[in-house]
């Protein structure tokens, strides 16, 4: 297991690369979902305002 983590001496380059890539993967999922949730919330808010006007 230690062998695996040390990556033949390249650990300090390999693991940050993987970490950064997977941060980017996760962040982009989160950003997309948040944008969708925000757009839905905004649409709902508009509907409720319309409802009050009536």
């Amino acid at each position: 297991m230690n062998d695996f983590l040390s990556m033949g001496g390249y650990a300090q380059y390999v693991w940050p690369s993987y970490a950064l890539t997977f941060v980017a993967v996760i962040v982009n999922i989160a950003l997309a979902r948040r944008a969708h949730a925000a757009a839905r919330a905004e649409a709902r808010r508009r509907l409720s305002i319309e409802g009050e006007d009536r």
Binding site: N28, A32, A39, A43, R46
Partner: peptide
């Protein structure tokens, strides 16, 4: 993965534009 993210973002964008 990109296609999936794009689809979610696209839905958000459509919703925002068509509100």
């Amino acid at each position: 993965y990109f296609v999936a993210v794009l689809l979610v973002r696209l839905r958000a964008e459509i919703l925002r534009r068509e509100r």
